[in-house]
Design a protein around this nucleic acid. Structure first.
Length: 288
DNA sequence: CACTTGACCTGTCCGC
DNA sequence: TGCGGACAGGTCAAGT
């Protein structure tokens, strides 16, 4: 669900809303993976700190504080980060919001700010987490050391892209695309969408994919992710942006959740199978 | 090291 | 209607 385009959409929203706000409180409702730090870390480095910037690396959000610490947040599958200003309270909620009054039963962490506004971390399935770490230590955590390059960076080239896959030469292209150590930020939706665009069958072994096919996949992956950011991400069930609103990429999806419909390129029926441990959507006629 | 599978969770949907 | 099971899919640990 939240993949690179969704996390980037949340980041942009929070980057407009959070910097300059001062943390006044941090409530930890029912999120066993969040705030494992000792309580004095929270009171020392979070409470009273001012938010400076909001960054993203892969599917991880980094909220930098002026205490040399950062909130490190992973939404995993059902995580949401929703900001509510003081004025939203009691006045109901915007009717284009997908969610109602907060906190609700999936709220795991609530940050309160000095001006009366709040940031809610909701997560139905409790896979996600919020941690507080020294900012300079973030590049050293296991995930950051292993994660691959950002596919949308302007200096990320097709030859780098192709070369990154060689470490997974014997597995299939769908599993390799989902491997965060190959390229950062690709999840199930954009793996299926980009393979359709590049006309590559998800079953293909990486070692058999030609340079020309990698070039198409590189172009399609970047195009699909950039378009998804443009559309505010994909809302299948849970995903919302920092204002609680849905994204519209699913209206433009070509295969994801379109099983049984006609392929827009060749007219054949789109299939859904189980592959690489995931629901996989593709067109067997024009993806070879 | 490369690769695959299951665990982590909760809510929903489908078949009986 | 109730109930069990499959499914949703990001990452890590444990297995081959």
């Amino acid at each position: 669900m939240p993949e690179l385009p969704e996390v980037e959409t949340v980041r942009r929203g929070l980057a407009d809303l959070l910097p300059g706000r001062v943390v006044a409180s941090a409530a930890h409702l029912n999120s066993p993976k969040s705030f494992p730090n000792a309580q004095h870390d929270v009171s020392q480095f979070l409470i009273g700190a001012t938010i400076q910037s909001v960054r993203r690396r892969a599917k991880v959000l980094l909220v930098d504080l002026d205490s040399q610490h950062s909130l490190v947040i992973h939404l995993k599958m059902t995580g949401q980060l929703v900001f509510r200003g003081q004025e939203a309270f009691g006045a109901g909620h915007p009717n284009d919001s997908l969610i109602g009054e907060l906190p609700d039963r999936s709220t795991r962490v609530v940050l309160g700010f000095r001006d009366g506004s709040h940031l809610y971390f909701n997560d139905q399935r409790k896979f996600g987490w919020v941690r507080l770490l020294p900012t300079l230590e973030i590049p050293n955590i296991d995930f950051m050391r292993k994660v691959g390059p950002e596919p949308l960076e302007s200096d990320f080239t097709v030859s780098q892209f192709t070369e990154r896959f060689q470490r997974r030469a014997r597995t299939n292209i769908k599993a390799a695309l989902l491997d965060q150590t190959v390229v950062a930020g690709v999840g199930n939706i954009y793996a299926d969408e980009s393979l359709w665009g590049a006309q590559i069958d998800p079953h293909r072994i990486v070692g058999s994919v030609s340079a020309d096919e990698f070039s198409r996949l590189y172009t399609e992956l970047r195009a699909v992710m950039n378009m998804a950011i443009d559309k505010g991400g994909s809302t299948d069930k849970n995903y919302v942006n920092a204002e609680g609103k849905r994204g519209s990429y699913m209206d433009f999806a070509r295969v994801f959740r379109r099983e049984g419909q006609a392929c827009s390129r060749c007219g054949q029926q789109i299939l859904k199978i189980r592959w690489a441990g995931r629901g996989t959507h593709y067109c067997a006629e024009c993806q070879k």
